[in-house]
Nucleic acid binder design. Structure first.
Lengths: 171, 171
DNA sequence: ACTGAAAGACACAGACT
DNA sequence: AGTCTGTGTCTTTCAGT
């Protein structure tokens, strides 16, 4: 059920420089870190029944292998004047490399856009936009988004309520 | 342009127990914490040209007033077998309190759903779902989502590429 | 791969400006 | 509202199992 022989970590992995698979302890550590990035190594150690050294080494390894991407601080949207969230769909007029690259560059430079995905369906991109209020969104829509070259259709969906928001991928 | 008199913090705020407005130093601290939740107070202090005490106090105050919501660790989706992301739109057959509450309870219990919003437009909810692969999504769609009572229409949009993803709200 | 100990860095509280 | 200083706790490394 939780057997971990000396070969446990590397047995599963694929090719040459493959990343060692995560074992039960690693996942326990990730679970704690996901909920609170500022938890101390000591606290983790006591909860997973290990001393600080292996916990420290495991965290470092997960940072180096990219399992742990970043430690971030989540801020209350409304309290930093970003209380309005809008989902925005964009299609481009042309689907060549140049148009796409140009669009991506423009999006990257817009701090209102907090997420952007390439999606299936009738639209090409989905954007998540965070702004202070409707006026700010109108300004963004008309004077920033629409100004990008080769923009085809635009469609906005407004977020009226947040039901659930989690960053917990590991359970 | 960056004047901060003794009344600076409280002058703007609204009612009685109102949260003091964030000043330039607070925003600088937030900027650093957003990028790296594990940054030390000392490091922040040196970057914002303050000693550790006021930085420590400011962080504590922002935690207490809810400006800082949580410190989280972001994990590589693919490396924890959650490499497929799907945006899923849901409409309910009935729009009474009971149906809504029941849906929300069901969604909350599903670990595949990492975000859920109440939205404007033809659908009622937008879900962001993270699963390992298409098989896992099919199973989720057919055996979990569709099983919720009063579910009307369902529409899935697949994320083919991540262009941008940030948690930086404060600039 | 883990434990335990030990050095250095840090957080946090106090006295003071 | 800030600096400086001290104490206790934490991170991080090293020797040993």
């Amino acid at each position: 059920m939780e057997k971990e022989g000396s070969a446990g970590k590397n047995a599963v992995a694929g090719g040459a420089g493959a990343i060692p698979a995560l074992d039960t302890k690693d996942l326990q550590i990730l679970r704690l870190l996901q909920e609170n990035a500022r938890i101390t190594v000591r606290e983790i150690a006591s909860q997973v029944h290990l001393s600080t050294t292996p916990v420290h080494e495991r965290i470092k390894r997960m940072e180096e292998t990219g399992v742990i991407r970043q430690y971030v601080t989540l801020v209350d949207h409304a309290k930093v004047k970003k209380g309005l969230m809008v989902i925005c769909y964009v299609s481009l007029k042309q689907h060549n490399k140049q148009s796409g690259a140009q669009f991506i560059r423009a999006i990257d430079a817009m701090e209102e856009v907090i997420e952007c995905y390439n999606i299936s369906g009738e639209f090409d991109f989905m954007l998540k936009v965070a702004v202070e209020n409707m006026d700010a969104y109108y300004h963004f829509h008309v004077h920033k988004l629409s100004e990008i070259e080769d923009i085809g259709h635009l469609q906005s969906v407004f977020v009226m309520g947040i039901i659930k928001q989690t960053h917990q991928l590991v359970y």
